Amino acid sequence: MNPAVYPPENIPLQGRYPGFQGQPGGSAGDQCTTVSIPPEPPRDHIIWSLCCFLYSNPFCLGLAALIYSIKARDRKVVGDMEGARQYGSTARCLNIWATVLGSIMILISLIIVTTVLVLAKQSAQRYTGFDNN
């Protein structure tokens, strides 16, 4: 399969001969296409920060996230994309922490309220003498 004329690393592919350069079926010159994609602008997470500030603001993390989001938006307007990316990243981390802590606090509150209501119902049944079991 390997003729003695060609060393193993120089075996032509797709039936080309050694003097041919370029794409099969095309011209012999090199053809390149360059696509320039603009980088995505950094995100400032302003809506998420506003929601965390208004609805779940444990340890003022929502306020801090809102401040960093505003700083990120200001940096983006000025044209400092790296600074905007850093402030946006900090706002994102603070939003994550505020959301997680707020969710945990809501869950614990629901568990406490449910437990208190069940204990109050049992206490009222014991006090009145009614036992529906």
Rank of each mutant, 00 (worst) to 15 (best):
G22T: 02
Q23L: 15
Q23P: 07
Q23E: 14
G25R: 08
G26L: 06
G26Y: 10
A28T: 15
A28N: 07
G29P: 06
D30P: 07
C32S: 11
T33E: 09
T34A: 05
V35A: 04
V35F: 05
S36Q: 11
P38Y: 03
P39Q: 01
P39R: 05
P42N: 09
P42T: 07
D44P: 06
D44F: 05
I47F: 11
I47T: 10
L50H: 10
C51D: 12
F53M: 12
L54R: 15
Y55G: 12
Y55C: 13
Y55V: 14
F59C: 08
F59Q: 14
F59Y: 11
G62S: 03
L63R: 15
A65N: 04
Y68H: 12
S69K: 11
A72P: 15
R73L: 14
V77Q: 13
D80E: 14
R85G: 00
Y87G: 00
G88R: 01
S89F: 02
S89R: 02
A91C: 01
A91D: 00
A91L: 03
C93I: 05
W97C: 00
W97M: 04
W97I: 02
T99G: 08
V100L: 02
L101W: 01
G102S: 02
I104G: 01
I104H: 03
I106N: 00
I106S: 00
L107D: 04
I108D: 10
I108W: 13
S109L: 06
S109W: 03
L110N: 11
L110H: 07
I111Y: 08
T114M: 06
T115A: 08
V116E: 10
L117E: 02
A120W: 13
K121W: 13
K121T: 13
Q122F: 09
S123G: 15
A124H: 06
R126I: 07
Y127E: 09
T128W: 06
G129V: 09
